[in-house]
Amino acid sequence: MARKFFVGGNFKMNGTKESIKAIVKNLNEAQLDPNVEVVIAPPALYLQLAVDSLTKEGVAVSAQNVYDKPNGAFTGEISVSQLKDSGVHWTILGHSERRTLLGESDEFVASKSKYAIDNGISVIWCCGESLQEREAGQTIAVIEKQLAALAAKLTPEDWKSVVIAYEPIWAIGTGKVATVEQAQEVHEAIRKWLAANVNQTVADETRILYGGSVNAKNCKDLAKQQDIDGFLVGGASLKPEFVDIINSNQ
């Protein structure tokens, strides 16, 4: 079945008021493919600025993280209700930079994902393997373990609020990109896992994005692959070429 192409821009810990305004202005004025869903994820400090500045239909704002508890004594965290109060209805969860640098486990990421979905926030859920794991032939096993933790928390209905982003850790911010064949192989494996362990409808409908040094030069070939439904873009989302990536499926 047709899955709507999806492009997310993860600004990570980058940006100022001036630069965020410039990025949003560029998106507001650009000719974007109307058949693509676009979500940008600035740092938490600039979420409200992005929401208030966006006028482009089809472009939404995402947080880069959210906690799995209601408002309370959780210093430094951000709650689902606070995101919704600010007009933010997406969050990125499970990014490798949080899994590896902050020690977020598969189970913790799954718990946060379930809490977000139950309370009205959609999730860009990230998975991926390290270079050591890829060289050891463990890529699919690592991804399936991450998927299993998420699936243990979600109902089949919950998956309608999930976009999966496959991001090989060795390709994030390194300039290295999985070959088209490598990316498609993992995306296909993820879809097969969903069919076998959740159901065929979820496998058919869930969008699976590729992330890992995506840029204007490599996005068109990746977009042609059967099981690649878009991108989660890092550094290139801070540049004008982000528009070219959004339009790569035309």
Rank of each mutant, 00 (worst) to 15 (best):
L54R: 00
V88G: 05
E97G: 07
T91L: 11
E107R: 11
V66A: 14
G94M: 08
E37R: 08
H89D: 15
H89A: 11
G15D: 04
K69I: 08
N26F: 01
T91P: 09
V59Y: 00
S53A: 05
S79N: 07
S111H: 10
K112L: 06
A63Q: 04
V88R: 01
I92D: 07
I78Y: 03
E77T: 06
P43E: 02
Q48C: 07
H89T: 13
Q82E: 14
S105R: 06
K17Q: 09
V38G: 00
I23Q: 04
P70C: 06
S111L: 13
E77R: 07
K69Q: 14
N71D: 12
S53D: 01
L32E: 01
K56G: 03
A63R: 05
E97F: 04
P42L: 07
V109P: 04
A30Y: 00
V24D: 00
S111A: 15
G103F: 12
S81Y: 13
W90R: 03
S96E: 12
S62H: 06
S79A: 10
G103L: 09
S105G: 12
D33R: 11
N28D: 01
K17Y: 13
Y67C: 09
K69E: 10
G94C: 09
I92L: 14
L102H: 14
A30Q: 01
K114M: 14
N35F: 15
P42T: 02
N65K: 04
S113V: 08
M13E: 09
S79K: 04
N28Q: 03
V24W: 00
K25V: 00
S105D: 11
N26K: 15
V59A: 00
T100P: 07
L45S: 14
L101V: 10
I40V: 09
E18Y: 08
S105C: 13
L93I: 15
E107L: 14
V88W: 00
S86Q: 11
G76W: 14
A30G: 00
F74R: 10
E107V: 12
L32A: 03
H89W: 13
I78G: 05
R99T: 03
G103P: 12
V66P: 01
V61A: 02
V88Y: 02
W90G: 10
L45D: 13
K69C: 06
Y67P: 03
T100D: 14
S19A: 08
K56A: 12
Q31T: 14
L101Q: 12
E107W: 07
R99G: 08
L32W: 03
V24E: 00
A50N: 02
V80H: 14
D85S: 14
K21V: 02
